[in-house]
Design a protein around this nucleic acid. Structure first.
Lengths: 232, 232
DNA sequence: CGAAGCGTTGACGCGGATCAAAGGCAGTGG
DNA sequence: CCACTGCCTTTGATCCGCGTCAACGCTTCG
């Protein structure tokens, strides 16, 4: 079976360390773990280190082990749009073409496993489970990107940030305490805003008692229902 | 070979009738055309007719034969974000989950071929070429959505429209005459603008001699280089 | 000829960008 | 342990691009 129902694969949340609801399908093929382990190589990146750039030869696929990776595009004048944050379990770097169509960098210190593309393809050629997981991870990325487009095109700053925080919290997971591993600039470039607007909107949400800020990185969602109601 | 370089698959242009540069990989498996023909069913939709809605059972995959299909998401208050326009050759409706994650409707009168999902899966199970083409069409959708996000998040109205027109023209194809098959509202909801802003921007581009408008639907790009320069 | 939709144009207001400056906060060196 | 330094974040003042509201024109069709 090649395009089956993948059970509870939801497309909403951004994968984060505490995101227990929508784990991006990693490579966990029963009975083939050994194979995968053999071709995977563990690598570490410090915050803001480049992992690959748009146009580089796409010879590796990555899975996040810890920390957060951002994938993004740059315009010539320096404007940046972050397409996705990838937390633990999330797969990125999969390409059909010869080169990467998007750049990737560490949004926080992070550990990833890299898989040589040729090796991975060879493995997938006779392993339907792995192939399905790769397919699923692309479909999940697409569904998230579609949802993200709605935010970018049709939502206000408040709605964008509310949705972002909810997805960070993994929505229904008990964890209403979030540790934001990325900078304000990263959040701004993800949501299509400026850092000033992001900061003001954080403050506004706090004044309106939807959240509590403990430093810039720690956020407690004190009114999740209210946050949900904020976003149409 | 399962995740090979797919030759010249570029991620930039929107598939349109005159888009000869980046045809979305259809189903054209050599030696298996008969099989595909057998399971494909031809269907017609009048402008604005619904093809499927978010949440419907995802039991069909579609390929556009003529006309343009829009895929979009709706917020509860009626705001709409069009994620993509699908022209001839473009595949849409492919899902991993049980239901469609996005809605589809006819942006113009159009003809599509629908493939029963079970049949298509069965065929793909022993046909690597078909499987690769399905994979490619999803990757292409993802790449376009990523490019679209940059427009939505980081570009001005003028840049958005310039890029849109260029992609309609198939960029480097000789055809500088475009027939827009979708309404101003569709364009606005695709670009994250209002119809008034779209209309004003069309007029502005005409005054600045980048384009000529012959009625609302016919556009001639008189200065393609200039249009390119407009978008960073 | 009249009515209904779609597209264009104008006047005005607002949300978020820009410009500017003043806090935190971590890392470094004395 | 504290002062210094540089970066990140917050906050304030102002500006402007695009949204909103409104009216009018064009096209299609009965």
């Amino acid at each position: 079976m090649l395009i089956p129902n993948a059970g509870g694969v939801s497309a909403a949340a951004i994968a984060t360390p505490n995101d227990s609801e929508t784990p991006n399908p990693g490579f966990d093929v029963d009975g083939h773990r050994g194979d995968l382990r053999a071709i995977g190589r563990s690598r570490h990146f410090l915050r803001n280190r480049q992992i690959y750039s748009e146009g580089d030869d796409a010879d590796c696929v990555f899975k996040v082990e810890s920390g957060v990776v951002r994938t993004y595009k740059l315009l010539r004048d320096g404007r940046r749009q972050i397409n996705a944050f990838h937390g633990p379990g999330s797969v990125f770097g999969l390409e059909i073409g010869k080169v990467y169509g998007i750049s990737a960098a560490a949004a926080s210190d992070c550990a990833v496993t890299s898989y040589g593309r040729r090796n991975l393809e060879a493995l997938a050629a006779y392993n339907d489970q792995l192939l399905l997981q790769l397919f699923s991870s692309v479909m999940l990325s697409l569904a998230r990107e579609q949802e993200h487009s709605v935010s970018l095109g049709r939502r206000s700053a408040t709605e964008k940030l509310a949705i972002f925080l909810l997805s960070c919290a993994g929505q229904s997971a008990g964890g209403r305490d979030i540790l934001l591993e990325m900078s304000r600039k990263d959040i701004a470039d993800y949501l299509g805003l400026t850092i000033e607007t992001v900061s003001r909107t954080f403050s506004d949400l706090e004044h309106r008692a939807f959240i509590e800020l403990h430093g810039a990185r720690r956020v407690r969602l004190t009114d999740i229902t209210g946050l949900r109601d904020l976003c149409a």
